[in-house]
Design a binder for these strands. Structure first.
Lengths: 198, 198
DNA sequence: GTCTATATGTTGATAGAC
DNA sequence: GTCTATCAACATATAGAC
C-alpha cells in the first residue's frame, strides 16, 4: 500500500502540485513531467493513466487524513479533549499539506467511478469517527447537540475549507488558525454550563 | 452590468454547469455548446474566450453572494439577528445555486490576473461586512470574540464548504442545513451569558 | 446568431532506441 | 527507467455562408 519508491513519491508530489494549481482537467502530463525535469513519457512508468495518478494521490491523502483524526482521538480520553485535538490536527494537516489536501478535497469528481466508491468509504469513516466523538460528549453531558451528523459535517467543514484559501507560505499563522478552529469547534458543541472559553 | 440577454444567461448557465461538473480546465467549449444544443462556435458569440465566460460567471456570482449578505444584514438591526440572517441566507444561496456557487468558490485560480484582482475586491467586501457585524456584536456585549477576522472567515467557511458536498437534489434538507449553520455560527460567537440556544 | 468547415496547437498515451 | 519521436484525438478559436 504505502511501499512507494522515492521516484514514485516524487511523481505523486509533482502531480499533486500541478492538480492543485490548475485542476485535474487543466493539467497535462507534460506539466507534471516538467515539474520533475523529465519527459512526459516518464509519467507513464508507474501509472498507466492520468486518472490512476489522481487516484493514488487521493487514496494516500484520504488515508493520511483519516489516520490524523484517529491518532488525535486515541491520544486522549475525554470527548472534549478528543474533539479539540481532532480539529486542531485535522486543520494542521490541511494547512501543512495544503496542495495535496486541495486535490484530495476538490478532485473527487474527477475520479473513475470504481475509485470514487473506495474514496467514499474513507470519507464515511471520517464522518463516523467524528459523529462518535460528538455522541460520546453528549452522553457524558459535556456537549449539547441537536443534529449529530450535521454538526460533525460543520466541524469538518471548518478544517477542510482551509485548502480553499490558506497559503502554505503563511507558516507562521498555522498554529494560530488550528487553535482558533479547535476553540470554535468547542463552542459549537459545548454545553453552556461547561464552557472552557477564557 | 446585469443587462444580459436570455441567450446570454443560458450560455452562462450551461458553462457554469459544465465548469462545476468537470472543472474549468476539464471543460471544452464543445461540452458547453452541447448542453445548449448548439455548435461550439455559438460559445464565442458573446464572449471571446473561455476565460471571459468564467469571469462573467464568477463576477455575477460574487455580486449576487455579496448582495445576499448585505440584504440579510440590512433587514434587521441587532448584531445577533444580523449574523443569524447572514449565515442562514448565505448558506441557502450556496445550496440553491450549488453548481454556480461551486464555480464561484473553486475556480478563482483559473481567472486571468486582471480578473482575479476584481474578484478579490468583492471577496474582501464580504469579509469586511462580516467582520463589521461581529465587531458590532462585541461592542454591544452580545458576542465574545478573540479573533474577529479569523472568526469571520470560519463563519463563512461553514457556508462555502456546502458547495463541496451538497446535492441540489436534496432540496428538502436545505432549510434544515441553513438553520443549523446559522445556529452553529451563533454558538461560535455568542457570549455565554446571552446564549440563545434551546 | 447560428451554422459548417477548418486552421493551428495541444492532449493522453505508445513504440522503440539506449 | 528514461529518452525522442510519434499518433490519433481533441482543444481553442476563427472564417465565411446563410
Amino acid at each position: 500500500m504505502s511501499h512507494l519508491s522515492l521516484a514514485q513519491q516524487r511523481l505523486l508530489d509533482a502531480a499533486a502540485d500541478a492538480f492543485a494549481e490548475k485542476g485535474f482537467g487543466g493539467t497535462s502530463t507534460r506539466d507534471i513531467a516538467a515539474r520533475m525535469g523529465r519527459s512526459s513519457a516518464a509519467v507513464y512508468i508507474h501509472y498507466g493513466t492520468k486518472e490512476e495518478l489522481l487516484y493514488a494521490i487521493s487514496f494516500q491523502g484520504h488515508q493520511e487524513a483519516l489516520a490524523v483524526l484517529r491518532e488525535a482521538r486515541d491520544a486522549v480520553e475525554d470527548p472534549a479533549a478528543q474533539l479539540w485535538a481532532m480539529v486542531h490536527r485535522f486543520s494542521q494537516w490541511h494547512m501543512v499539506h495544503a496542495r495535496r489536501a486541495r486535490v484530495v478535497q476538490y478532485e473527487f469528481g474527477a475520479l473513475a467511478e470504481e475509485h470514487r466508491a473506495e474514496i467514499r468509504d474513507l470519507r464515511r469513516e471520517m464522518s463516523q469517527l467524528t459523529v462518535e466523538v460528538l455522541g460520546d460528549g453528549v452522553a457524558s453531558g459535556a456537549f449539547v447537540i441537536a443534529d449529530l451528523e450535521g454538526t460533525a459535517r460543520a466541524v469538518l467543514s471548518l478544517c477542510i475549507d482551509l485548502v480553499r484559501w490558506f497559503d502554505p507560505g503563511l507558516a507562521r499563522n498555522q498554529e494560530r488558525v488550528a487553535v482558533l478552529n479547535a476553540d470554535l469547534a468547542m463552542r459549537m458543541v459545548a454545553s453552556p454550563r461547561t464552557s472552557l472559553e477564557g
